[in-house]
Every structure is written in structure tokens, then in C-alpha cells.
């Protein structure tokens, strides 16, 4: 990885308990789905985060949750507008084009899909996003407004009207048909990715149509 570049924070807002959206000016081109490394010091080992903003937006947004005892996020959450962070160039190949596809995410695994969404790639897509609580359904209003019923929010720990109650795995398993000809993009906890991938394969989706992202 090349030397990290300094960026000045524009905002760092707590969007849900323990979850933050950090933004800074975009000074690079990227492909939706790519990641960048973020560090608080220029010589620190950067942590990887998926970009959550569109590729034409002026600001880059990063969605993160604070990991108690973590090396980066507790400090990152204390930063304010005007403070600086250090970022790598974008990289990575978790990329989806304009073709029909199903996006499945849990938690902050929504970030690469948010980037694709804000880059105008949601037209032929179904987005299924799960979290424990409704407050963790980041960008819900935007998804609902544009995607309508192609957006399926789900919660495991609370029952909320209009939101599927249960795991994304359960939602998928209850669908009568899963189109084997489209690609399924998965991003979230390792457990979810593996469980959903197993389910898809069991239901006849060829494994070459299952595209999984690592969630560091």
C-alpha cells in the first residue's frame, strides 16, 4: 500500500447507537464496492473500510461501528469536523455492474451496496439488509424512496411495522423461488455470508453466481 494521504474530516456523526458516518472530501476516483484504508496517524497500520458514498459525490462517506477496545474506532469516534485522518487509495474488486442482481447485507456490510446505490446502480437490484435493531438499518429512507419494495429491511431483535422480523437467512429461505441466473452479492459477518451462501447453493444457485466480500 502506498503512503497514506491526509484528509480533513467534514463530519463524523453518530447515526445509530455506536454507529458513525464519517465524511471527508473526495480526492480520488473509485469504483463502487471498493475499500480504503483509514488510520489516525500517517505511520499507523490502516484498517479497511468499504466506501459508502457514490462515486460522483463530492464527499467520501465511511460507515463504521465502534468496537470497544479496538485499535482505531474508539479514537475515530472522538474525531470532529476539522480533525485529520489518513487514508489509502481505494482498491478492491467487490464490484457489481448494471446487471440484475440481489444484494444481501448485514450490519455495516451495507456500505459497499450503499456506494453502488448512490452511484446509480440499484435499478435492477433487490437489496436485503438485516440488523439487530431498526436503528441499524442505515440509509433506510433513501433506499425505501428509490427502491420501494425491492428494498427489504429486516431486524432480529425488535418487531417494527414494515420491517421483516428475523434474519436475512430466514427471509431468503422463505422465498418460494431464488433466481439461479442472477448474481447474489453478500457482505456482512462471516457467519451470515457462509450461511446464506450455503442456502443459495442448496436452493440451486450455482456457486459462481455467489459473490462474497470479506468483512474485516
Amino acid at each position: 500500500m502506498k503512503a497514506l494521504k491526509q484528509s480533513t474530516i467534514i463530519s463524523n456523526l453518530e447515526t445509530a447507537p455506536g454507529a458513525y458516518v464519517l465524511s471527508f472530501p473526495r480526492s480520488f476516483a473509485f469504483v463502487p464496492g471498493q475499500v480504503i484504508g483509514i488510520a489516525m496517524k500517517p505511520d499507523e497500520k490502516p484498517r479497511l473500510y468499504s466506501i459508502a458514498s457514490g462515486n460522483q459525490e463530492a464527499l467520501v462517506r465511511i460507515l463504521y461501528t465502534v468496537k470497544p477496545g479496538g485499535k482505531l474506532t474508539p479514537g475515530l469516534a472522538r474525531l470532529q469536523a476539522g480533525d485529520v485522518i489518513y487514508t489509502s487509495e481505494p482498491f478492491g474488486g467487490f464490484i457489481c455492474g448494471a446487471e440484475k442482481a440481489v444484494w444481501v447485507a448485514t450490519g455495516t456490510g451495507i456500505a459497499p451496496f450503499a456506494s453502488m446505490f448512490y452511484s446509480g446502480l440499484s435499478v435492477n437490484k433487490v437489496l436485503i439488509h438485516g440488523n439487530r435493531f431498526a436503528s441499524g438499518l442505515y440509509f433506510l429512507d433513501d433506499f425505501l424512496q428509490v427502491m420501494g419494495n425491492r428494498y427489504v429491511p429486516s431486524c432480529t431483535r425488535e418487531a417494527v411495522e414494515g420491517i421483516y422480523h428475523g434474519r436475512v437467512l430466514k427471509y431468503l429461505s422463505e422465498l418460494e423461488q431464488l433466481d439461479p441466473l442472477v448474481k447474489y452479492y453478500l457482505c456482512g459477518s462471516a457467519e451470515m455470508v457462509v450461511d446464506v451462501r450455503d442456502l443459495l447453493i442448496e436452493r440451486g444457485v450455482p456457486f459462481e453466481n455467489v459473490v462474497a466480500e470479506i468483512f474485516f
Binding site: F94, V210, V211, I214
Partner: peptide, 10 residues
């Protein structure tokens, strides 16, 4: 390799 090992994306 990407289909076998998601790390290939990163």
C-alpha cells in the same frame, strides 16, 4: 479464485 476465496476481492 474470487469464487473460491473472497479475499481475492481485496
Amino acid at each position: 479464485r474470487r469464487r473460491l476465496m473472497p479475499i481475492e476481492h481485496v
